Amino acid sequence: MREWLGQYKYRGNERYAPLLGLMLDRAYLTLKEEKQQGALLSQKASFFHLIQHKRYIKNSLWSADLLVPVPVSDTRLLERGFNQAERLADVLSRHRKIPQLPLLFRTHHTGKQSFKGRAERLADMKNAFGANPAVSTLFKDWLKDNSPISRPIRIIIVDDIYTTGSTIRACAEILKQMVSNYDYAAEIYSLTWARS
């Protein structure tokens, strides 16, 4: 996996994107299955589940509403020529028909996180992301047209590798704030291809 990620991310071998994306798709299916089983178990505990069985089955079909790739800095984009998380999210978006929006942007270049310790990573990620103003109107329209009435919006942050979680946490904070600015609630999940 380390070799594949190196080929894809650092050597620009984009042919790996479909394969890694399909592997990420399997991880999504696992997440979906876990969430659906959890919903069914909680519903079975309800006294009224037999009366409202059809409604429970319908509501237990968990799926994400939106994918948000972790953005890379302009420096990294020039260096690599592509955003690896965005390419992985593209594969998942096509397979599962889940829309993808680049709701975030990097406010500054943070350097390669793989060479840093936990404390450095956490410090680096403070204020490293912001709400992407280029898609704010698009996001507002999407919320009006697609937000569920009876539950929070399910957003999945997509990245290639999870190390300390500092990147995911920083992105999640911005997304929760964005959603709450429009008076909606959100459930934020993360999906990564690998864990270091």
Rank of each mutant, 00 (worst) to 15 (best):
R87N: 12
S147Q: 12
R76C: 03
L61G: 03
D145R: 11
H109I: 10
R76N: 05
I51W: 06
L104W: 07
A85R: 02
H49Y: 11
E120R: 08
R118V: 13
F129V: 06
Q100N: 09
V135L: 12
A39I: 04
S60M: 01
W62F: 04
S93R: 06
S73F: 13
Q37F: 00
R118A: 09
L41D: 04
I149C: 11
L40K: 01
H95M: 12
S60C: 02
P133L: 14
K116M: 12
T137V: 10
K112R: 06
Q84Y: 07
D141C: 15
H53W: 13
T137R: 12
D141K: 14
P152I: 03
V135D: 12
L103Q: 04
I153E: 08
T137H: 09
S93Q: 05
F115C: 13
F82W: 03
Y56R: 06
L104F: 10
D145A: 15
I149T: 08
Q37V: 00
L88V: 08
G38P: 07
S73D: 13
L66T: 10
S73V: 14
P69K: 05
A39M: 05
Q100Y: 06
S136M: 09
I153T: 09
L104H: 03
R151Q: 14
P152R: 01
S60I: 00
R151Y: 01
A85Y: 03
K126S: 06
R87V: 14
A64R: 02
G81M: 06
F48H: 08
L61D: 05
D74P: 13
K112Y: 09
V91N: 04
G38K: 00
N83I: 09
H109F: 13
A134E: 10
F139D: 07
F129M: 08
G81T: 05
R80L: 01
L143Y: 10
L88E: 07
F129E: 07
A131Y: 08
G81L: 01
K58V: 02
D124E: 09
S93V: 08
S136I: 12
N127I: 05
D90M: 15
L143F: 08
L41S: 00
E120I: 07
P152N: 00
P99I: 15
Q37P: 00
V72K: 02
R151D: 01
Q52A: 13
F105T: 14
R94Y: 15
L103N: 01
G130M: 04
R80M: 03
L143I: 10
R87L: 15
A131E: 07
D74G: 12
R76T: 12
L92W: 03
